[in-house]
Design a protein around this nucleic acid. Structure first.
Lengths: 135, 135
DNA sequence: CTTGCAACTTGCAAAATGCAAGTAACCAAG
DNA sequence: CTTGGTTACTTGCATTTTGCAAGTTGCAAG
C-alpha cells in the first residue's frame, strides 16, 4: 500500500507544498519558530501581529502536518511549547529562497538571518530608505 | 524619495514576498510560465484546473507586481501572451526549494523540472507509486 | 475574593475562493 | 446573414477563510 494518498489538486510537489503552507501566515510562524520562539505568546507577539484565532488554527494544522511539535513544558496550568520537527526545519530552505527573492526584488525589505541553534542574528537590508518599525 | 513604501505588515522580506505570492495559486501560475506556457488557455488547462476568474485576477496581480508581462501576440482579435519578467523568473529558486521540500517530505509528490530555456524536462519521483504525467 | 497573566475560543463582518454561466470579438461554414 | 467554434475573459452567487474584538479557563498572587 505504501503511502498512496489521493492528492487534492495534483501530484506536483509545489502544489502539495502550497496546500500545506501556501497562505500568508504559516511560513511566518515557521520563521518565528526557527528564530527560537517557543510559546504561544511569543508567537502572537510577532511583528506582523497575527490574529490569535489564526495562530491557534495554524498551529493545529502545522502540527497535523508534522511540521510543528506541541509539548507541555509546565504542569499546573498546563502550558505548551512549540518546536519544529525535522520536516518543519527543512522549510528553512524555502524561507531562505523567499528572503533572497524579497531582498533582491522588493525594495526596502530586510531579513533577520537566524543561526539554527547558534543564536547568531544579523540584519541585512535592501535598497530604499529606512523603514519605520512600529513603536 | 526612492521607493519608500509603507509595508502592510512589516519590513520582513518573507512577509512581503508572501503578500505577493502567498496564496495557493500564484506560484503555480509562475511554475507553468517557467514551463513555457504562454496563453491564457494554456494556463487555464493546468493539471490543477485553476478557476478562470482566479487565473484572470492572479495574472493582473502578478503583472501589477512586475512578475509577469502581458504582450499582444496577435492583432485582430487582440490576444495576449504572458511571460515572466526577470523578477518573475527569479522565483524559480523559490519553486525549486518547494519542489525539494515537497519531494522529501510529502510522499508521492513529484516534480517536473524545467530547463529555463533549454526545454529539458525530466521527471523525478518520490516514495509511492508511479503517477501519470500529462501527455 | 478580586486581579492578572497565558493560552486559547467564540462571534460575527468582511474578504477571498470556487463553480457555473455568460459575454465579446473574430473567423469559417452554410 | 445566421450558426457554430475558439479564445479570453467577466459576472453571479454560495461557500469558505480572514480578521478584529471580546470572552473564557486555569491558576497564582495580593
Amino acid at each position: 500500500m505504501s503511502t498512496a494518498k489521493t492528492f487534492t489538486r495534483s501530484a506536483c510537489a509545489v502544489a502539495n507544498s502550497l496546500d500545506v503552507v501556501g497562505d500568508k501566515w504559516s511560513l511566518l510562524v515557521v520563521r518565528d519558530l526557527l528564530h527560537g520562539k517557543r510559546t504561544y505568546g511569543e508567537l502572537a507577539d510577532s511583528m506582523e501581529r497575527i490574529p490569535t484565532n489564526i495562530l491557534a488554527e495554524r498551529l493545529k494544522r502545522l502540527e497535523a502536518a508534522g511540521i510543528v511539535l506541541r509539548t507541555p513544558y509546565q504542569q499546573h496550568p498546563t502550558r505548551y511549547s512549540y518546536t519544529l520537527t525535522p520536516k518543519g526545519s527543512a522549510l528553512g530552505d524555502v524561507l531562505l529562497a523567499f528572503v533572497r527573492w524579497g531582498k533582491q526584488h522588493i525594495p526596502g525589505t530586510l531579513a533577520l538571518n537566524q543561526g539554527p541553534a547558534s543564536g547568531t542574528s544579523a540584519v541585512s537590508k535592501t535598497g530604499a530608505r529606512r523603514v519605520q518599525a512600529k513603536t
